[in-house]
Write a protein that binds this DNA or RNA. Structure first.
Lengths: 233, 233
DNA sequence: CAATAATGAGAGCAGTGCTCTTGTTCTTCT
DNA sequence: AGAAGAACAAGAGCACTGCTCTCATTATTG
């Protein structure tokens, strides 16, 4: 049954994968704005209407690419985390994750733009993207959690967060990063957004004429300062 | 001469302004991706080809909107800076600038997306946008400069930057923010990118389900920590 | 083997950016 | 003042897009 039924299903999977692959190629070549279903179909030797059997609309194709991209950065971040020993200095582990995100982004700028640039289709990010979108921040949180177990997690720099922020951070920690104190969780969320801002500036060329020569050093240095800022020793 | 010649020139200015105005309206309504020259022309009661007398292409229209948006955020930041007294605590002045940027972004999400989202046209941001794009970071730098004159500028948190970063930061400071030490300048650039990341997360809905209730408090708190991080007392 | 569902092909619709040509109006120079 | 020139608006048209139909073909199921 799986064999016979699998024939069509496998074909479907293969065609779906081929479409995404070609779409990614064209994405890398011309950007999301100019990604055209017809061009993808043409390149694949199929007619454009056939493509709608696999993706109900252009935006759905884009959403699929977004999900894949989230998974890819997330995997890169997690791989970087497992590549560095558990008992390494937390700041090193933190830096490794950040560098992995940056490296992936620089290697796949258009895909990175897809997930952390302007939401292309309508305006709000589709719901399917919230799950895979958490892998990077969870990797960052994992560093803090491990540091805490080793007694290498201190207080975040600066004033403690005001009540409401602390309360919400504690809720968030309870759900996604058990054990982490509220202030650390708040600092962590902020660091996540800051990391994305930092990477985005580099990928989207906003640092052109500002940081030109020592980009990797600048990034590493900044990200290390962030580690200390969160409370990692 | 100015009167007669001015007739056409003024008409041109007015039509140009009307086009941009209508384009901004449609931008706010449907986003940059769906901004159509024909729709703008239609709404203005003119034929689409006539619009090309004013903007050589759709991308040029977008670029014009980008420049305007940069100026608008920049002005908001500068206005916020002049609204708070010169001798106020530097951290307060810093926070005021950051809050102004955030407020503008939340009020004009699509325009903000235009300047800090994916570069829509090709991939690199047009050259005309580098000038107006510096007003926000310069406002941040101004806070640090004023703090230095009052003796309220300390060392940035964390390790000092490595040689190349410090050198490049000093060059940058010499050109754009005379008097600022290299480490502060490096921290400043990082903070700028981090601020944009933070605002972008909120505007683009990436904080949905993460930071939900105490957004303003969270932002203010984070931005205050950043001020201390840069060295502002 | 017959009924059913999935797939592909093609035509077609409404919309897009952009170009070219044609007539008209304003500006400038003699 | 009148002629030459530029700026402009309008329309037709091209190549392209996303998407929806209809119709034939194929594979899967009863």
């Amino acid at each position: 049954m799986t064999a016979i039924q699998g024939a069509r299903e496998r074909a479907r999977r293969e065609v779906t994968a081929a479409i995404k692959e070609e779409a990614r190629r064209r994405l890398a070549a011309e950007g999301a704005a100019k990604l055209s279903l017809r061009a993808v179909a043409r390149e694949l030797g199929m007619v454009s209407s056939a493509l709608y059997r696999y993706f109900p609309s252009r935006d759905d194709l884009l959403t699929a690419l977004i999900v894949d991209a989230y998974d890819a950065v997330g995997e890169a971040a997690e791989a970087a985390l497992t590549a560095v020993p558990d008992d390494a200095p937390p700041a090193d582990r933190w830096t490794a994750v950040c560098l992995a995100v940056r490296a992936w982004a620089l290697a796949h700028p258009h895909e990175y733009a897809l997930i952390h640039g302007t939401p292309v289709p309508g305006y709000a990010a589709p719901r399917d993207t919230v799950g895979p979108g958490t892998r990077v921040p969870l990797a960052l949180a994992a560093v803090a959690q491990r540091a805490r177990l080793s007694g290498l997690l201190g207080e975040p720099a600066g004033d403690p967060p005001p009540g409401p922020v602390r309360a919400e951070a504690e809720e968030l920690a309870a759900e996604h990063a058990p054990g982490l104190p509220g202030p650390v969780m708040a600092a962590l969320v902020a660091s996540w957004a800051q990391l994305i801002g930092l990477v985005g500036f580099e990928v989207f060329g906003q640092f052109n004429g500002v940081v030109v020569a020592a980009r990797t050093e600048f990034f590493t240095h900044t990200v290390r300062r962030m580690a200390g800022d969160v409370g990692l020793r």
